[in-house]
């Protein structure tokens, strides 16, 4: 099993395109940090207009913690795509290269193969989020320094003292790993149906975009289904920056995503077990 996992990880990390994800995260993060360095005050002025009209806030608002939050918010849409690039290729890529039949000649069950593909995608996801934490959080802290953090919600202003922030980021990144693992499992599931990786990658993004729109559209018709969409719960990391932290809601969101992850993984195993492999 370990040997199989090593092979899967080798396959992922020998491909140059795997590193595109890390490069993209670095580039986007740098761009946002640069934008904040040059025009962060203007951006803050717009976002905090309602507060600034009535309160005089003094101190180092544009600090590393706030910039990291802005980066994470901006990367909401891109990260699922980067996860899908690898997980969507896991089975479909093998089918496209014609190596899937060869892989299945090994004395390992199809379920184990799917599990190893999932586990390797999970490890890639963890590394991607760790890289994001490194370049977004630690580099921002290096460039912008520390300080108390302000968090603007649509109808609330939240201030968090600087000694009370770091644990929230650790929890937020852990939550992001869970959310992206759900995306990885969806992508792997779609990958089982295809013979080339473009289809599952595009399909994953399509599902994420459509469900995200449904999650955010304030139309009563969608209120019934909104709590059941995994995209509604993907922004659960933001809950750690609320006051008080809605632990119960975050726990529910984590459960919903774990349910989806297990569901997609089970469905992938069931389908892949029955699949007639022709390539």
């Amino acid at each position: 099993m370990i040997q199989l996992l090593k092979i899967e990880l080798y396959k992922i990390f020998k491909r140059p395109r795997t590193y595109i994800s890390f490069g993209l995260i670095t580039a986007i993060t740098f761009l946002i940090q640069l934008a904040m360095l040059t025009d962060g005050k203007g951006f803050l002025g717009f976002v905090m207009q309602g507060i600034n009209e009535q309160f005089d806030i003094q101190g180092h608002i544009l600090n590393g913690y706030l910039v990291t939050y802005i980066i994470l918010q901006s990367l909401l849409v891109q990260i699922p795509l980067l996860v899908a690039l690898v997980a969507g290729d896991a089975l479909a890529g093998e089918a496209n290269l014609g190596t899937l039949r060869l892989l299945l000649t090994m004395p390992i069950s199809r379920a184990k193969i799917v599990l190893m593909k999932f586990l390797s995608s999970f490890i890639y996801t963890v590394l991607l989020i760790l890289w994001l934490a490194l370049v977004a959080l630690f580099l921002s802290l290096l460039l912008f320094g520390t300080g108390d953090m302000v968090n603007m919600k649509s109808d609330a202003f939240i201030m968090i003292l600087k000694d009370d922030i770091m644990w929230r980021y650790f929890m937020a990144f852990a939550f992001a790993v869970l959310a992206m693992t759900t995306i990885a499992s969806l992508s792997l599931f779609l990958s089982a149906f295809a013979d080339n990786s473009i289809g599952p990658i595009m399909a994953t993004m399509g599902v994420v975009v459509v469900l995200t729109i449904l999650s955010n559209l304030e139309i009563p018709l969608f209120n019934i289904i909104r709590p059941y969409l995994f995209t509604t719960h993907m922004v659960g990391w933001k809950g750690f920056f609320d006051d008080p932290v809605p632990f119960a809601a975050i726990g529910r969101s984590a459960l919903v995503m774990a349910f989806y992850t297990i569901g997609f993984l089970t469905a992938t195993i069931v389908y892949f077990n029955k699949k007639d492999i022709k390539s």
């Binding site: 309602g50 009209e53 304030e218 909104r226």
Partner: peptide, 23 residues
């Protein structure tokens, strides 16, 4: 004074969100 930011900008985490008439 109450203040509001577009939810499209803030992308709030609120699972049980209902439309805000004041907004």
């Amino acid at each position: 004074k109450d203040f509001k930011l577009p939810k499209g900008v803030t992308v709030d985490y609120n699972v049980n969100a209902t439309p805000d008439t004041n907004a």
